[in-house]
Simulated scan of single mutants.
Amino acid sequence: MNNRKTIYLIRHCEAEGQNADAELTANGRKQAVELADFLTDKEIQFILSSTYLRAYDSIKPLAERLHLSVHKEERLIERKLSDKKLDDWLFLLEKTFTNLDIVYEGGESSRQAMERGVAVVKECLLRKETTFAIVTHGNLLSLMWKYFDQAVGFKEWRDLSNPDVFQMNFELDKIIVNRLWRDKT
Rank of each mutant, 00 (worst) to 15 (best):
K146D: 10
E105G: 06
E156Y: 12
L125V: 04
K128Y: 09
E16M: 06
R127I: 08
Q150H: 12
L68D: 06
E43Q: 11
N27P: 10
G107F: 01
T25D: 02
E94C: 09
K184I: 15
N169S: 12
H67W: 12
K84N: 12
N139L: 07
K184Y: 14
A55R: 04
C13I: 01
P163R: 08
E43D: 13
L76G: 08
K5W: 03
Q167C: 11
A113T: 03
S82L: 00
H12Y: 05
G117D: 03
A133T: 05
K155H: 13
V70W: 03
G138T: 01
K95W: 01
N19C: 02
L141A: 06
K122A: 10
E14M: 07
S142L: 04
S50W: 05
P61V: 00
A55W: 02
K42A: 02
K122S: 10
D57S: 13
K174M: 15
D41M: 12
D149K: 06
D21L: 00
Q167L: 09
F38K: 07
T96A: 07
A15S: 08
A119T: 14
L180T: 07
S110G: 14
A15R: 05
A26M: 05
W157G: 06
K72C: 15
H137L: 02
D83N: 14
M168L: 10
E108S: 02
K84M: 12
K174Y: 13
V177A: 08
A36C: 10
N3R: 12
R65T: 11
L76R: 08
T98E: 00
D88I: 07
T185L: 13
L160P: 06
L140C: 01
R111T: 05
G106W: 01
K84R: 11
S109C: 03
E34V: 00
V33Q: 11
W89Q: 03
G28F: 04
S49G: 05
A20F: 08
T6P: 10
T131C: 14
T51D: 01
L53V: 10
C124K: 04
E78L: 00
I47E: 08
E23L: 11
D183T: 15
V165M: 08
